[in-house]
């Protein structure tokens, strides 16, 4: 675009602009052309002194100050984040240890309860076994007593029956032995 406008200018300047005369910029016979440069030197020196002594250092200080404050705040934020991270780590550790403790407690309680229940069940079954054994013993005793009581009755009845049938009575010991044999056979059967 610049090149285009320059080309346009070159095309137009000879016909239009330069038709009226020379460029004032090239008119060095005019004393003002060079006098403006001296005045520019004065203005620039003053501007330089004002900027270099007064304006720019203050802006630089403002920028430095801001950079320092930002750096300080960033450092503070970083420290706070580290603190928070540490707190979070502590929290996590506490939580996990508490969870482990609780699990251990629960496991222990469950084990205790199980052991307790097992002990109670064992005691109960032992008691039951004892009662059972006692009952069986009583039953055995009763039966034995009954059996013992039946023997004289049976041998007496057998002696009576033999007396009626045969008219003779065998010896008492033999009769008792035969009755015992018969009872044993019955019992085995």
């Amino acid at each position: 675009m610049r090149r285009l406008s320059t080309a346009l200018l070159l095309a137009l300047v000879p016909s239009v602009a330069l038709a009226d005369g020379e460029m004032p910029q090239m008119d060095f016979s005019n004393p003002l052309t060079l006098d403006q440069v001296s005045w520019m030197a004065v203005i620039l020196v003053v501007l330089y002194l004002v900027l270099a002594r007064w304006g720019l250092p203050q802006i630089g200080k403002v920028l430095e100050n801001r950079a320092a404050i930002i750096a300080r705040d960033l450092a503070a934020a970083r420290a706070a984040k580290q603190e928070a991270d540490r707190a979070v780590a502590l929290l996590t550790a506490t939580l996990s240890s508490a969870r482990a403790n609780a699990q251990a407690e629960v496991a222990k309680a469950v084990a205790d309860a199980k052991a307790d229940a097992a002990a109670k069940a064992a005691a109960l079954s032992a008691a039951l076994d004892a009662k059972l054994a006692e009952s069986e013993a009583r039953i055995d005793a009763a039966r034995n007593a009954a059996m013992a009581a039946i023997k004289p009755v049976a041998s007496e009845a057998a002696g009576e029956m033999l007396l009626k049938l045969t008219g003779s009575v065998p010896a008492q010991e033999e009769l008792v032995r035969c009755v015992e044999d018969a009872l044993a056979v019955r019992k085995a059967a």
């Binding site: 602009a17 004032p24 403006q36 203005i43």
Partner: peptide, 26 residues
């Protein structure tokens, strides 16, 4: 069209400028 007239130098700031050759560009 006077395309170059805008560049011509005159004195500025009234009589003071005229005395000191303080131009319109200054």
């Amino acid at each position: 069209i006077d395309a170059l007239g805008q560049f011509s130098l005159t004195t500025g700031l009234g009589p003071i400028g005229r005395a000191l050759n303080f131009t319109n560009s200054n």
